[in-house]
């Protein structure tokens, strides 16, 4: 039961914390928790690591960071950790994930670069390739051209699938 209340709370938060004097009380009213219960639970979820950060989630594109490239690399399994650690030394690398290869998509390391424009991102990528010694590595560069949806990562209690 505690878990499901937390889930309700995070689903509410995924809609965005209300911008009003007592936002945690406003959220609490919707799910049957007091203001202090909401705050306690959020503290707990943050401490436990369920919430990695709590704060303003910016829209990079509106703020002038119009270019965002996902670069996927084919790295030998044994070297993935070492390569990823090297990539993370660069502050323009905002995310770095290992994902499975598929027969039609044989790339296993994904990293993201956010920059003000495509040229900046291309230069940053060139720097990354040079300094991490990646010139011989198979890769694909995927610039984003449009964002169709960006919202909080919580499935809702009555999911669209169940409604269908």
């Amino acid at each position: 039961m505690i878990e499901s209340k937390n889930h309700l709370l995070l689903a509410q938060l995924a809609e965005g914390l209300p911008i009003c004097s007592h936002p945690y009380a406003t959220i609490g009213e919707k799910i049957g928790l007091s203001e202090s219960q909401v705050i306690e639970r959020l503290r707990y979820l943050q401490k436990k690591g369920t919430i990695k950060r709590l704060g303003i989630i910016v829209k990079h594109a509106t703020l002038g960071y119009r270019a965002n490239a996902m670069i996927v690399w084919r790295i030998p399994e044994a070297e993935i950790d070492i390569v990823a650690q090297k990539m993370l030394k660069f502050s323009f690398v905002t995310l770095c994930y290992q994902r499975p290869m598929l027969p039609e998509w044989s790339y296993n390391l994904y990293c993201m670069i956010h920059g003000k424009n495509k040229v900046t991102v291309e230069n940053q990528l060139a720097q990354l390739i040079k300094q991490c010694d990646l010139s011989a590595v198979e890769k694909q560069i995927l610039f984003s051209s449009r964002c169709f949806k960006q919202r909080g990562a919580v499935y809702t209690a009555n999911s669209s699938f169940n409604e269908k």
């Binding site: 995924a14 369920t50 990695k52 709590l54």
Partner: peptide, 23 residues
């Protein structure tokens, strides 16, 4: 903050949850 929201500068005030923490 309301103006930043209207201008689409912020997505929301909220939580970043690592993959697979929930579901």
């Amino acid at each position: 903050l309301n103006e930043l929201d209207e201008k689409q500068c912020i997505s929301r005030i909220g939580a970043i949850i690592p993959p697979n923490q929930l579901g």
